[in-house]
């Protein structure tokens, strides 16, 4: 009898506080698996955000640091610059990265910091109760947009991967999702490629993961995956936007 799937050493034994069916958990597992498979658990330093994943430092089985809202890339920059031999990553939500922390992510990419970012885009401020984010879709309801996002009032949702792909210092930019087992495997592949790029000293990398927030979207976990596929993917196309070969 061969074990084909068991829990990675990249995660601690702590039980997560995430809501049932929240895809934050799937992405945590993928990050843990990749850290373990690349053999960097001993030298990895993660930076946790403010948002539902604020407690990520309890879940990843490596050294972790907490950052103020949106400032994870700035904290990661400091850590990487004083400890260039460590592997440094941030894990951030869309409210964190695409709103209050837009300047930090843009300039970390622009400076070509040798850090890696996992960006959880669930089109909402999950932790604070479902307020509209810059990434909320037009027409999507939020507690601060009870009739749905109004384009005339708030503009269209921001596409961070496309934006960051215009920056020279960003050497790896890919958008993935975790709605099916096949998509989960593709997401893991992208995270691995992104992390390897840092280990090779090539520069900044980011993987945007289209994720669900069943609780604030008001759907069951399965309905939320379906809603993501039908509504988010058409606006936020999956795929790679930048690889080192194309940049050179």
């Amino acid at each position: 009898m061969a074990v084909v799937f068991k829990k990675t050493k990249g995660l601690t034994d702590a039980q997560t506080h995430y809501c049932p069916g929240c895809t934050h958990g799937i992405v945590h597992r993928l990050v843990g698996e990749v850290l373990e498979e690349l053999g960097v658990l001993d030298k990895a330093i993660g930076v946790a955000p403010v948002g539902c994943s604020v407690l990520a430092y309890k879940y990843f089985n490596c050294d972790m640091h907490e950052a103020a809202h949106g400032r994870a890339p700035a904290v990661a920059t400091g850590i990487k610059r004083v400890r260039p031999d460590n592997f440094v990553f941030t894990y951030q939500g869309d409210g964190d990265l695409a709103s209050i922390g837009t300047a930090e992510i843009v300039h970390a990419a622009h400076r070509g910091e040798k850090i890696s970012t996992i960006f959880i885009n669930n089109a909402i401020y999950g932790m604070t109760g479902g307020q509209m984010a810059p990434t909320t879709l037009v027409g999507q309801k939020a507690t601060t947009a009870p009739n749905g996002r109004d384009e005339a009032h708030c503009g269209k949702p921001i596409k961070m991967s496309e934006l960051l792909a215009t920056i020279d210092g960003a050497k790896f930019v890919e958008r993935v999702t975790v709605t099916t087992p096949a998509n989960v495997r593709k997401a893991k592949k992208a995270i691995k490629e992104c992390f390897k790029l840092q280990l090779e000293g090539k520069g900044f990398g980011i993987v945007e993961v289209l994720s669900t927030c069943p609780t604030n979207w008001g759907y069951t976990p399965q309905e939320a995956l379906k809603w993501l596929e039908e509504n988010m993917i058409p606006y936020y196309p999956l795929g790679n936007f930048r690889k080192p070969e194309e940049v050179e």
Partner: peptide, 19 residues
């Protein structure tokens, strides 16, 4: 033994073996 269940589980509840 395809592990699709474990691949989608957000809480790493599942272990899969192949006989």
């Amino acid at each position: 033994g395809c592990a699709s269940c474990a691949t989608m589980c957000p809480d790493v509840v599942i272990t899969v073996e192949r006989l």
